[in-house]
């Protein structure tokens, strides 16, 4: 199952894009309470939002964003059937991508 959830809502002349990604977003300074070892940094570094293959938002993210990050953007226009594609890459090289059709 994809780690990315996308919701869109068509408003007056614009479309709200909301996304929730399940990711630990560890910044590398937290300790594991059981082993007392530092938990290695593991966080999303890049997030891209595309609208029908056109890049809308390209972002660089640090570990200062909360666990299971949430993002919302507002697309100008947007029609039923348009595709929203979101993908991310983390500092360990993992990636994930998800497609959503505006309803």
């Amino acid at each position: 199952m994809s780690s990315i959830k996308i919701r869109t809502k068509r408003l007056d002349g614009k479309t709200q894009i909301r996304t929730l990604i399940s990711h630990p977003m560890e910044h590398g300074r937290n300790k594991d309470p059981k082993t007392n070892q530092l938990i290695p940094a593991h966080f999303i570094q890049e997030l891209t939002v595309k609208h029908n293959d056109k890049v809308l938002v390209n972002s660089n993210i640090g570990a200062g964003v909360s666990k299971d990050p949430y993002f919302a953007f507002m697309l100008k226009g947007g029609a039923v059937g348009d595709k929203i594609i979101i993908n991310w890459r983390d500092n360990l090289g993992n990636t994930d991508s998800e497609e959503h059709i505006i309803e």
Partner: peptide, 17 residues
């Protein structure tokens, strides 16, 4: 915490945690 590069197709609106 984060840098967002916005294209002209999105409004001046960003929300996160």
């Amino acid at each position: 915490a984060a840098v967002f590069d916005l294209s002209p197709d999105v409004e001046a609106f960003v929300s996160t945690r």
